[in-house]
Simulated scan of single mutants.
Amino acid sequence: MSPRVVLVGAPGAGKSTVGRLLAGRLRVAFRDTDADVEATAGKPVGDIFVEDGEERFRELEAQAVRQALAEHDGVLSLGGGAVLAEATRELLAGHPVVYLEVGLSQAVQRVGLASARPLLVLNPRSQLKKLMDARRPIYEGLATLTVATDERDPDEVVEEIVKGIES
């Protein structure tokens, strides 16, 4: 069993929104590894970071990704930082990985500066830029397809993904 599509990208790229629409379009299930982590931990991602630390969150995240890649055959959305783990990058080899590319201004609008996202607590715009700059080469290296999401309706993004994975 293997996901039909794996979505990666920075916070605000639209992984959840596009993922749900894409799953509907492809008539498959949608799964989000952040939701899996929250279900395992019994608390929101932000609380895991605060109470247990980022290291524990990353352990749970890596476990969630490994499990989802092994048992999910629909659209899979990974948390933005899941690709930081080398083991996860190795597991993604051979899977159809779609990088949802987003610019800083769009990401800020979508995420919001008063976000509850734990890695964006102090100076969210600056933190988001650093995060995006550091992760962009990883996303690009994993991607079998890159789709820009700036100033685009999610349905347009889904259409481009469908064309890209079916060609």
Rank of each mutant, 00 (worst) to 15 (best):
P137G: 12
E55M: 02
G53C: 11
A93E: 15
E59D: 14
R58A: 14
G9T: 07
F30E: 12
Q127P: 05
G141Q: 07
P154I: 01
V83E: 13
I161L: 03
L21T: 04
S126M: 02
A64P: 14
R20P: 13
Y99S: 01
G9N: 05
Y99Q: 05
N123C: 10
Y99C: 08
Y99E: 04
R110P: 13
G74Q: 04
V157W: 02
R56M: 10
R27W: 05
R31A: 13
I165G: 08
L91Y: 09
G141M: 07
E151P: 00
Y99V: 01
E160K: 00
D155C: 00
V157D: 11
V37M: 14
L131H: 05
I161K: 04
R56H: 12
V98H: 12
E159G: 10
A93S: 12
L78P: 15
Q109G: 04
E51Y: 09
A64V: 00
P96E: 09
E71I: 01
A134D: 15
E156G: 00
P154Q: 06
G46M: 06
D52C: 09
V50E: 15
V18K: 05
L78H: 09
L128D: 12
M1R: 10
D133T: 03
V97F: 09
A85S: 14
A82R: 07
T33K: 08
T144I: 02
R20M: 11
G79R: 03
A35P: 03
A29T: 15
L113T: 12
L91E: 15
R125I: 06
E140W: 05
P3Y: 05
E140G: 11
A29Q: 15
S105Q: 14
D150A: 01
E90F: 04
L142M: 13
R4H: 05
L100E: 04
V162T: 07
D34L: 09
L26I: 15
R25M: 05
L128F: 11
V18T: 10
V98C: 11
D150T: 00
E90M: 08
A93Y: 02
L145G: 07
R31L: 15
L100K: 00
I161M: 03
G94M: 04
A68T: 11
G14V: 00
A143N: 12
V147C: 05
L84V: 11
D32P: 13
V158N: 02
K15H: 05
Q127K: 12
A116P: 14
Y139T: 11
V108H: 03
A93F: 02
T144A: 14
S126F: 05
K130H: 13
A87H: 10
V98Q: 08
L84H: 07
D47K: 03
G81M: 09
